[in-house]
């Protein structure tokens, strides 16, 4: 077991009170497993990803624990987390492409990063990996703006996995890319896992069709909580949570045409995470809601490896 997340709660402090962005999420991640994390914008995907590596100034660790390779991560303590970053857990943040320092050549950036981790640069290995993602060696002498979006994204991937972390978290790294570049990036990520550059991975996106190409397991979140988690094919073909079902049926698939089959979205919006009302957070939009939904549905393992948090499914 690479990772064990137990009842993790991370809130944002704001003037109006705490935003309960991650409210009691538990899941395991096996060695070699790729977990796809999906859900609507604002459901807490980025918050979960960040909670495993670095809490920003407004986030606070309210409860729960994270265990990586048998060690409990001190996620609430920024300084104590430092030795773990890059070496044990690495994050490719949302919008990381535009976050690269524009005034540094890429090669220098890599060297400085490794120095800050007190690691030596293995140039051969770096060249190998550039080869693998089909980037020419001379990118190291270029500035970030000279690279296209897809090239930047692959470069960030190489950099963040250079020290072979156990866990790689990739947050929406494909959303700004076109379909053919998306495919190249996703294929590369899979290659990283197969070659053992990273042991396991959390791949965050709201595009379920894309996650399904890569992930072994898909976890769907809704409004700061786990809605459903199951092997990828189960989530896609036999989802049990009403939210997952609606989400899957709203996807325009290849070959589906408006004139033949009009797809529908999910009406309504997710609830505010500032003092959310008790009970199932999907209640307002759920077609199956009944009285019991005023209570919080606990995640239940309905069959092996298939966890659902819904009164109707359990």
């Amino acid at each position: 077991m690479t990772l064990e997340v137990d009842d993790l709660r991370v809130y944002y402090r704001t003037l109006k009170g705490d935003v309960q962005a991650l409210d009691g999420v538990s899941f395991p991640l096996r060695d070699g497993e790729i977990l796809g994390l999906a859900g609507e914008s604002g459901c807490g995907k980025t918050t979960l990803g960040k909670a495993l590596i670095r809490l920003d100034g407004r986030m606070k660790h309210v409860g729960g624990s994270v265990t990586l390779d048998g060690q409990v991560l001190p996620i609430g303590d920024d300084a104590k987390m430092n030795p773990y970053r890059f070496k044990h857990v690495s994050l490719i943040p949302q919008y990381s492409m535009s976050a690269m320092n524009p005034t540094r050549k890429i090669g220098r950036m890599v060297r400085e990063l490794l120095e800050s981790r007190r690691e030596k640069l293995d140039l051969d290995e770096l060249h190998n990996r550039l080869d693998l993602v089909e980037l020419p060696k001379d990118v190291l002498g270029k500035y970030p703006i000279e690279l296209s979006g897809g090239m930047k994204q692959r470069m960030v991937m190489v950099i963040s996995t250079l020290l072979n972390p156990s866990l790689l978290i990739a947050d929406e790294i494909t959303s700004a890319l076109d379909v053919s570049t998306q495919k190249a990036v996703v294929t590369t990520l899979k290659g990283f896992r197969d070659r053992g550059f990273v042991k396991s991975m959390i791949f965050i996106t709201h595009d379920i069709s894309l996650t399904n190409q890569l992930a072994d397991t898909i976890m769907v979140m809704y409004a700061g909580k786990l809605a459903e988690k199951a092997p990828a094919s189960t989530v896609v073909n036999a989802p049990k949570h009403p939210y997952t079902q609606l989400l899957i049926s709203s996807l325009p698939e290849v070959g589906v045409r408006y004139a033949d089959k009009r797809l529908t979205g999910i009406p309504g919006n997710p609830p505010s995470l500032l003092k959310p009302e008790p009970g199932c957070r999907f209640r307002d939009r759920c077609p199956l809601a009944f009285e019991k939904c005023a209570e919080d549905p606990p995640p239940v393992e309905v069959e092996k490896d298939h966890v659902v948090a819904c009164w109707k499914a359990a």
């Binding site: 379920i208 325009p252 408006y258 009009r262 529908t264 979205g265």
Partner: peptide
């Protein structure tokens, strides 16, 4: 619609 969520995408498309 490329920056929108899967569930909102279809509404705008329709």
């Amino acid at each position: 619609i490329s920056m929108l969520d899967a569930s909102t995408r279809i509404d705008v498309l329709n």
